[in-house]
């Protein structure tokens, strides 16, 4: 009897409306996903630009990109997040000061996306560079011979062909992005992990809330894995049929 009563009080703590924390947890999950999506997207853009720079840029560009990817991959995300968080908001306010605008408070969401994006960019540069160099040179030469512009070659030939090779690495990066958002809890951004900590500390039901949050993260991973598998099958199929 005691056990059933315990379980029902525990579950009532996870109810969606206050005093239950379920709604707050889901809201946290939503902001985690927002940052993960934004950061991942920004990282992809940086990655594509970086990979093009590393493969087709001049020597200075390649060396600078090498410094960027090496440094970001050697410094812990936690330190980078603190550095970029302070440096980024300082920089923005400095620029605003020069333009004689009043200083602003950087939105936590924007800062989070920026930080995760910079970190992800370094890794996806390497992934995309590897995938791009697997494209047969003849395909690109043929596209140029047809009279396409560099931008069109990138959009029509390089990116679609690169995707098959890059998918394993890029999907791994997506999973890392969803988990890296938890680090923003340390700088006080209210995403899933921080809300979980507040809920656990407030109610003293540590195990319950951490396990619930773990299940939420795990379901994101499992759903992503399922989606990635579908996408992979689709890409392989289209590649085989051409």
């Amino acid at each position: 009897m005691q056990l059933i009563a315990d379980i029902s009080t525990s579950l009532s703590l996870l109810a969606f409306s206050p005093p239950g924390w379920g709604g707050a947890l889901l809201k946290g999950l939503l902001s985690s996903l927002q940052i993960a999506l934004g950061g991942y997207g920004l990282g992809l853009l940086i990655g594509i630009a970086g990979a093009c720079g590393k493969l087709y840029g001049n020597a200075v560009c390649r060396d600078l990109l090498g410094c960027y990817t090496t440094a970001v991959r050697a410094v812990p995300e936690l330190v980078l997040i603190l550095l970029l968080y302070y440096a980024g908001s300082d920089l923005v306010n400095q620029v605003l000061h020069w333009l004689s605008y009043p200083p602003i408070d950087i939105n936590g969401l924007v800062a989070g996306i920026f930080v995760i994006g910079i970190v992800q960019g370094a890794y996806s540069t390497e992934v995309i560079r590897g995938a791009m160099s697997a494209i047969p040179v003849g395909h690109i030469e043929a596209a140029f011979a047809c009279g396409m512009r560099p931008w069109q070659v990138l959009k029509r030939i390089i990116l679609p062909e690169m995707l098959v090779h890059a998918l394993p690495g890029l999907s791994n990066l997506w999973l890392i992005a969803t988990k890296d958002t938890a680090l923003l809890a340390v700088v006080g951004f209210t995403e899933l992990t921080l809300i979980t900590k507040q809920a656990a500390g407030g109610t003293k039901h540590h195990m319950l809330f951490y396990c619930a949050a773990g299940l939420l993260y795990l379901s994101v991973t499992l759903i992503s894995n399922w989606g990635i598998k579908k996408l992979d099958n689709h890409l392989r199929h289209t590649k085989a049929s051409t």
């Binding site: 999973l175 773990g214 994101v220």
Partner: peptide, 20 residues
């Protein structure tokens, strides 16, 4: 799958605060 699918920070807090 469970360990790789959840953030390390969450595991750390689960072990330290939960088990603790």
């Amino acid at each position: 799958t469970v360990i790789r699918g959840t953030p390390l920070l969450l595991q750390l807090w689960l072990i330290y605060y939960g088990l603790g």
